[in-house]
Design a protein around this nucleic acid. Structure first.
Length: 250
DNA sequence: CTGGGGAGGGGGCCC
DNA sequence: CGGGCCCCCTCCCCA
């Protein structure tokens, strides 16, 4: 039976969210454990709305045309407010070539594929790229719950789930960020242990714990002290060993 | 005090 | 792009 997961203490309260203060969960698992697989539910609209993110800039790996990008970005960001997609900033306007200029695009041979601004020399284009577009092409999606930033919307959505915790155990009400975490938790209720040790046949509910257990069967363990060469089955044990002062004198 | 098990978090990869 | 899965890691607790 689980021992501590319901009374887990967060000594460093700043490190982990206060789950009780988060918004209400949206997914429940029925007692029919293996029929009703956990379903993830999209977080609250305001969480996934464009306002939830801070898409500062757009990132591309090179300077090639990115015709597909703006539409893909707007696909996820403009559904709730059609008619206001892709607003161009003042700076963007300044970056565009002035087509009415008598020395307009026709006279320029090197054109920025991102902002369409043209230059008569390649070095001019490179300078523009370094000073303006390269900086602007680094996308940054910020979490509205914390200070973390991600380079992709998908990564941010994944992270936001750690705040919203949409997967909730029907039995005990504990919430999780991902369905498979909930599945692992449900095993603590059912006692299911699908991962067996080939050496001693001891079973585990979690693959990671089996992996840690396998280390105990090894003479030379994975984590080794740099100073005394003693090995440990877990990094945490190695850290304890180092903090104990064993190697301070060396 | 040390080693090990239980439980869970988070990023990355693949489909 | 999202879900599932894997891997690595941490924290807590107990023998």
């Amino acid at each position: 039976m689980p021992r501590s997961f319901l009374v887990k203490k967060h000594i460093n309260s700043t490190k982990k969210p206060n789950y009780s203060e988060l918004e209400s969960p949206t997914v429940f698992i029925t007692p029919h454990f293996y029929r009703g697989l956990p379903l993830s539910v999209i977080p609250q609209p305001e969480v996934l709305s464009p306002a939830a993110y801070s898409p500062v800039t757009v990132w591309t790996s090179d300077f090639s045309p990115i015709s597909g990008y703006p539409s893909s970005l707007s696909d996820t960001s403009s559904k709730d407010h059609s008619g206001s997609e892709s607003p161009r900033s003042d700076e963007d306007e300044q970056m565009l070539p002035k087509l009415t200029d008598p020395h307009g695009v026709e006279a320029e041979k090197f054109q920025c594929s991102l902002c369409s601004k043209s230059y008569s020399t390649y070095s001019g284009l490179l300078k523009h790229k370094q000073l303006h577009c390269d900086a602007q092409t680094r996308k940054s999606f910020s979490c509205k719950y914390c200070e973390k930033e991600y380079v992709s919307l998908g990564a941010l959505k994944m992270h936001i789930r750690t705040h919203t915790l949409p997967c909730v155990c029907k039995i005990c009400g504990k919430a999780f960020s991902r369905p498979w975490l909930l599945q692992g938790h449900i095993r603590t209720h059912t006692g299911e242990k699908p991962f067996s040790c080939p050496h001693c046949n001891r079973a585990f509910a979690d693959r990671s714990n089996l992996r840690a257990h396998l280390q105990t069967h090894s003479d030379v363990k994975k984590y080794q002290c740099k100073n005394c060469s003693k090995t440990f089955s877990r990094m945490s044990l190695l850290h304890k060993h180092e903090e104990s002062g064993c190697c301070v004198a060396h």
